[in-house]
Design a protein around this nucleic acid. Sequence first.
DNA 1: TTATAAAATGAACAACGTTCAAAAATGAGG
DNA 2: CCTCATTTTTGAACGTTGTTCATTTTATAA
Lengths: 198, 198
Amino acid sequence: MVGQRQTKKEDLKARLIVACTELIREQGLKNLRARDIAERAGAALGGLYTVFDDLDGLILRVNSGTLKQLENTLNAAISPSAAIEETFLSLSLAYLRFALSERNLWSALFEHRMPEGVSVPEWHLAEHAFLIGLIAAPLARHMPDASRQDVAIRARTFFAAVHGVISLSLEGRFVGITPEVLEREITVLAGILARSRS
Amino acid sequence: MVGQRQTKKEDLKARLIVACTELIREQGLKNLRARDIAERAGAALGGLYTVFDDLDGLILRVNSGTLKQLENTLNAAISPSAAIEETFLSLSLAYLRFALSERNLWSALFEHRMPEGVSVPEWHLAEHAFLIGLIAAPLARHMPDASRQDVAIRARTFFAAVHGVISLSLEGRFVGITPEVLEREITVLAGILARSRS
DNA sequence: TTATAAAATGAACAACGTTCAAAAATGAGG
DNA sequence: CCTCATTTTTGAACGTTGTTCATTTTATAA
């Protein structure tokens, strides 16, 4: 008998992740409170700390879920045989639309900071790898003489470039631009990167 | 007689800005405490709130100073008559080096978030404009048929792209790359953007 | 059923940003 | 130079955080 103990604990964990995800989605990472999470999960405040080390641990799990969602969205947006221009464009626009439709969850991916000294755990860093992989696949055909690692680095650079444009826009720094113009700029940038030869 | 009153108040304000700047530089925005700022400025805790509405107001002033520093650095890095490739490369590398040498102050520029609802004041948004201007000047020569506004938007896109690469790297998301590789990637990206035609 | 171990609870704690009644400093009138 | 109304400075106190822990409740095995 595996027992009711573990079952309840896993259930609590799941409820906390759901509650935390919903609260971040609705109110953003900055307005997240441990007490709100516990209340929405139907648990006592202390219960959170029987399942996670601290709030950061819970947030990391929420971000894991968001990354998985993003992975599914991006995978659905491309076809493996497409030309690099089409793939970059599809990926960029799908990324933009994901960011727009899940703004707070997407923001949490990049706004969240670990406390002083402690760094993001390895298992969570690894969850970002698929982003690189999606770009590296078509890019490798464009860089036949480059090592696998160099392609990965360049893929990271291209992702970061597109991400930077979206991120700076949605953060509301500088003067804002309309979604239509943002989509146009992303389209232009994706084209420039796809056609680039260094 | 303008009085000792206003003088002391301005002095307090200046000391608070200096103290806050130093603390952010040394410990980062996340570890900033109102009590630490007041102590280092040689003031009482409450004094901070006689000069600024809240911590955010003070942080905005610190970020203003950082932006001015950045502006001076970037202006010194370029010559107005240079070709676009050279200008983009100089700007990008100067930006990278500024970010590396004043990491915490630079991070504070983009990590800082206003509280729920309130948005960054207009006067502070305007302080970012020089970044666009620096890029727009050489870019305009490359986009002779584009309107002034379209050039500004494209300049913003290019800045955001380079910023994204630097930002994602220094944040320590994904697996880290060495400063040398980062410099190489920035160089490549600056070249791609300078030679681009949409 | 009972005894032992585990888990859930929420009051309590420390640390934070912010406020405000009280104290100190300032400047004009005598 | 003294006086006292006004302004500024002060830091104790407040409300709200994340986190802990003694206590209570629950689950399991004998």
